[in-house]
Simulated assay, not measured.
Amino acid sequence: IFQTRSRGCLKNFLGITFVCLVLLTCVVEKHTLLWTFYLKYKAFVDFPLSLILPLVVWLFKRQKDFNYQEKTEKDKEERKNIAKYKNNKQVKYFAGITLLIFFPILFSLTGCQRLTDVEEKNYILSMYVDYPADEENAYQFWIARANLSEMEGQSDEIPCKITKIEARNLQQLEEKYLEIVPGKTEWNHIYTIFLGSGIAANKTACTHLLKEWDNEWQKSPNVLLALCPENPKELYKIKNIPAGAAGQEINLLAEQNKEKYSGQICETPIDYLRAKQQQEDKITLYRVTIENGNLKIMTDEL
């Protein structure tokens, strides 16, 4: 694009631009709004131009070389007609190439709506289950899901929302849950299943629920299983952790005590079902309690 006599200016310009970009990157990474604007500029302006400008330069260069070859008036007239035809053809070609490049880029930057938009998915982080004695074949579920839309920019804490549902099995639970909270539900990120006193006392109901959990391929097989005699309302309102984040906290405590209780604990639904199949008399699980407003973890026999 630049003439030969302007190479010195071009070098100076490129050097200054490079230094400015280096300084700019040191600034924008610390400011979310600047960084977001910079990424949008690169995606929607800089990248498309990097594809389109070389093509424009090539077309102009071809036109310039063609004009230098004109010698006689007759040739000029003939070449004008040819050039006119070629220019029309090149314009159409250029427009077609631009559309083929530009629109796929814009389409790829829009995402795939619910298939990839994280904030529109319902990520289940923990679940409290109980089985009241006065209710026949009905479980009570307290579902804690991640509320990603309310997360602060640089915060590591994931706020949760709690939804209480009564259902006879997991399939009915999912159906009722989707009626209350529409959208795609992700169970693969769940940390902990808390077993209340009622379901802990009813081993048949507990085994039936965990078998159904194990048979569903989309459910997380490595979810932590823990007894919890505490009221779910108190469990999900511990002051020293984010609201609803008891599942993450207990999972972390279990990981820290893993070596201490190695080989003694049935940590997952699969471990529990395997112990039941082997007809073990005593099944040891983690037990969660609240002491002085803090979550504590120990072992207990079911």
Score class of each variant (00 low, 15 high):
Q218T: 12
Q256K: 10
P229H: 10
E267S: 14
E186Q: 09
N215T: 05
P242F: 01
L252P: 00
V288F: 04
S262R: 08
G247H: 09
I199N: 09
N257T: 01
V288E: 01
G247T: 10
I193W: 14
L252G: 02
N231F: 02
N202W: 14
T207I: 10
A200D: 00
E255Q: 11
E230G: 00
Q277Y: 06
A243K: 10
K203V: 14
P182M: 05
C228V: 08
L252T: 06
L227M: 12
T185D: 13
V288A: 13
R274G: 03
N292F: 03
E280P: 04
T204F: 07
T207S: 14
A245N: 01
K258L: 11
G196P: 03
T204G: 12
L273C: 04
L224F: 07
E267F: 04
N215H: 15
N231V: 03
C206F: 11
I265M: 10
G198C: 11
K203R: 08
E255H: 11
Y272V: 05
E249G: 00
A201T: 09
P182T: 08
H189K: 12
P221E: 07
T185H: 15
A205D: 02
N240V: 01
I250W: 02
I193T: 08
S262K: 14
S262D: 06
S220C: 05
N222T: 13
A201V: 10
C228N: 06
N231Y: 02
I238P: 02
H208P: 00
P182I: 06
N257I: 01
N231L: 02
Q278C: 11
K233N: 14
E280V: 09
K258D: 01
K260M: 11
G183T: 05
A200L: 05
Q256H: 01
V223D: 13
L195V: 12
Y286L: 07
N240L: 02
L224T: 15
E291M: 08
N240S: 04
N215D: 14
N215E: 13
G183Y: 15
E249F: 06
L195C: 07
K233G: 02
H189A: 05
N231R: 02
Q278K: 09
E291K: 12
E230C: 04
K219N: 15
L235H: 12
Y272M: 05
G263H: 06
I193P: 09
C266Y: 06
K233D: 08
I270N: 08
